[in-house]
């Protein structure tokens, strides 16, 4: 009885939350489907009178769309792969090993998260100029990796700590070497952790604007957010194609997330010890 009752109130709250949270998203999508004269009016309508795909056509045929899409894909791909690999090694050390200087390492990882990005912009730009990495995707990728690393290391460490050491020890007894034990036993078990952190790194790299804006100057190097920002200038914002482009930019994240979310939820670790 009790659960039935609470379920109704939570369903109602759920619907309210969907409306409140979803409204800006809804507005983005409907605007992308409205003709120009229906967009910026004093009396905007919730539902477009005339559905049109002209904004999508306009956005996708504009110069640089495919190029910036491709750039973003490259940046995201390498940011996710590199940060996960590098962080996985580090998190094994932090979660599983004792070593001198560990506290300092952990402290510096945590402190990096507190650095205000806006304060580092200039020295970062100067540094990358010296390294000849400005206006190169590699420079952006390296910077993104550095900024997402702390979160990824720390989250993976959390997943690793929850995996009983008995599992690796058993593998060692069975004649595995240590790297083998990690590869064959630990790696599959932290898959959900890798997935969760991959999403985090993916979204950060896909949506990041400020750093990319400072570090990349030529239009053919622009990532999607920079390309999107091109729709706003001092004369105002060209909302229709901007919303169409943003909707398109959100699709890969949604696909990536839905492919991956089941894996987090199933919790691969659940039966590992009992089995």
């Amino acid at each position: 009885m009790k659960t039935e009752k609470s379920s109704i109130s939570s369903n109602i709250s759920g619907v309210i939350a969907i409306i409140l949270m979803g409204f800006p998203v809804y507005w983005m999508i409907t605007t992308s489907l409205k003709p120009k004269d229906e967009i910026l009016t004093v009396n905007p309508t919730l539902i477009p009178h005339h559905l049109t795909f002209s904004n999508y056509i306009q956005a996708t045929t504009k110069d640089g769309f495919l190029q910036s899409l491709w750039n973003s894909v490259i940046v995201v791909f390498f940011t996710v792969i590199i940060s996960l690999a590098v962080a996985l090694f580090a998190s094994i050390a932090v979660a599983r090993m004792k070593f001198k200087g560990k506290q300092i390492y952990v402290a510096s990882i945590l402190l990096v998260q507190m650095l205000p990005l806006t304060a580092l912009l200039i020295p970062l730009f100067l540094l990358l100029t010296k390294l000849n990495l400005t206006d190169k995707l590699a420079g952006v990728i390296l910077t993104y990796v550095a900024f997402v690393l702390p979160f990824v290391v720390w989250t993976l460490r959390g997943f690793l700590v929850n995996i009983p050491t008995e599992l690796e020890e058993a593998a060692l007894v069975d004649g595995c070497t240590k790297p083998q034990a990690y590869r064959l036993v630990l790696f599959p078990l932290i898959a959900p952790g890798l997935v969760a952190t991959a999403i985090f790194a993916f979204i950060q790299a896909w949506n990041e604007f400020l750093l990319a804006y400072i570090l990349l100057s030529s239009p053919e190097k622009a990532t999607l957010p920079i390309w999107l920002a091109g729709y706003t200038n001092r004369f105002g914002t060209d909302w229709g194609p901007l919303m169409a482009g943003s909707t398109l930019a959100a699709i890969p994240v949604v696909i990536f997330f839905s492919l991956i979310q089941n894996r987090i939820a199933t919790g691969v670790t659940a039966g590992a010890v009992k089995g």
């Binding site: 949270m21 896909w206 957010p225 999107l228 959100a250 997330f257």
Partner: peptide, 9 residues
């Protein structure tokens, strides 16, 4: 979707 929306947008 909210998470996936570019912050600038």
């Amino acid at each position: 979707l909210v998470w996936a929306m570019p912050q600038l947008v």
